[in-house]
Amino acid sequence: MRPNKLNTRLAVVALAVAAAFVLFSQSAMAKKRALPAPALLSQTVELPAGDDVFPDRPGAETADRNCLSCHSVDMVLNQPALPRETWAGEIEKMRSVYKAAVDPGDIDAILDYLTAIRGESRRSWR
């Protein structure tokens, strides 16, 4: 009898431990799930205007009018000296891919301007 009783007691203890474990782990899980995720608060920021214009020389106003509605002038002024053909390709990409509203009559003046400020004679690379 006694061993049985002991066994029962052991079983009860074991059950209690198991139950506590289950309860604890459940409550831990519940707690984990209930932990509020760090709230993402709405954000409002102010971005610099980027409204500088091209350096003054013939064609600057044409470049201002056609280029600066989509991007700031530093995007252009940070470019290296490039062959005239490359600049022509860039203007064409702005028109055909990015749909920049470049007046066809202004293209030559813009190309002259860009070649004057960031141009180079065509290199010998193929």
Binding site: V45, M75, N78
Partner: peptide
């Protein structure tokens, strides 16, 4: 070097608009 952009410390300014 710019500190004018929101939530940003000192950064090298490549382009203002779009921000680069």
């Amino acid at each position: 070097i710019t500190k004018d952009f929101p939530q940003k410390g000192m950064m090298v300014l490549q382009s203002t608009r779009p921000p680069v």
